[in-house]
Amino acid sequence: MRFAGKSIIVTGAGSGIGRAAAVQFAAEGGRVVVADRTGGADETAQLIADAGGTAVAIRMDAGSEEDVTRTVGLAAERFGGLDVLFANAGISGGMANIFDTDVALIAEVLRVNLIGPFLAIKHGAPPIAERGGGAIVLTASVAGIRSGAGSPAYSASKAGVINLAQVSAQQLSGSNVRVNAICPGLTETGMTKPTFDYAREAGKMDRVGRLNPLRRGAQPEELARVALFLASDDASYVNGQAIAVDGGLSSSHPVTRQEYGKTAV
């Protein structure tokens, strides 16, 4: 029960990695604010309640400062403060290349994927420090490590998240608030559901994740377990790090290169 009595916020908790993490936090004694901009937040909170855990749901936009402060306030109101924040919410932004990417699209991807974690740290770190310290975990991506695992908009946003974890860990020096990031590889979530559904229908599941040494995609629970490790005292000396959880993909990032003016095949 690593999180017994702890007050925890999980964003993007309506499905996928966020839902898996919220459920696991609650199973280990955490009191969880389940935040998502969809009704999935209520579903996750109900799953936790049905299992005997403690959770409260809130609709929030991770890239809205007003929503983030409201969510942190709810943790204080219901659970007396904040100990752990898992800033997991994100969007994909499609797969267009640089020349086909609309400025409005990349601005929205950056607003949710990068400004969202920035706001989580800005408003989440002070109350965590007031409680004597704790942890913030951000969801980045292997796409943020190097080229080849995502669109330009998504990749740039996740590279920013990795750097944000490093910078904020330094700027929180002396606060006892640790900041780390997880970098998922291909994981079966709402964002990647079409890919997995197509592979199953076409009988091509053996091709999903074939570029990583484990030759498979991940399940959300596998990513959640790493997020919980980083949020727990088990990782008490891990700070400012980006941990790849990708089956080994980022050890080489094999890709089919796209030539200028041509479409990759």
Rank of each mutant, 00 (worst) to 15 (best):
G174E: 08
T71H: 02
T69N: 10
R210W: 14
V72K: 05
A181Y: 15
S251I: 10
N180A: 13
D234M: 05
D197K: 13
A153T: 06
R31M: 12
G116A: 09
S64N: 06
G18H: 10
S236D: 03
Q24H: 10
Q166H: 05
V103A: 04
I91T: 08
L249W: 13
G18I: 10
S15V: 12
A104S: 00
V84C: 03
R216K: 14
S252W: 01
Q170G: 05
E130L: 03
F86W: 07
L214A: 13
I145G: 09
A89M: 14
K204L: 14
A96W: 00
N239M: 08
G80A: 13
M191Q: 08
V142L: 11
V142D: 14
A129N: 05
G240A: 09
A57V: 06
Y237E: 13
R59I: 05
N176G: 06
N176D: 12
A35C: 01
H253S: 04
P126M: 07
A22E: 05
N180Y: 00
D36V: 01
G52C: 01
V23Y: 09
A169M: 04
A89P: 15
A13H: 05
G144E: 03
R257E: 14
E222K: 00
V137G: 11
T195V: 12
I136F: 04
L214S: 12
A20L: 07
L249N: 10
A181P: 09
T192K: 15
I121K: 01
I58R: 11
M191K: 10
V84A: 08
I48Y: 06
A62T: 04
E188T: 13
V238G: 13
M1Y: 08
A149F: 07
G174V: 08
A227E: 01
S168E: 12
R131N: 09
V245P: 01
S252V: 09
R257I: 06
T44S: 06
R131E: 03
P127E: 15
V255A: 15
Q24M: 13
I115H: 15
M191I: 12
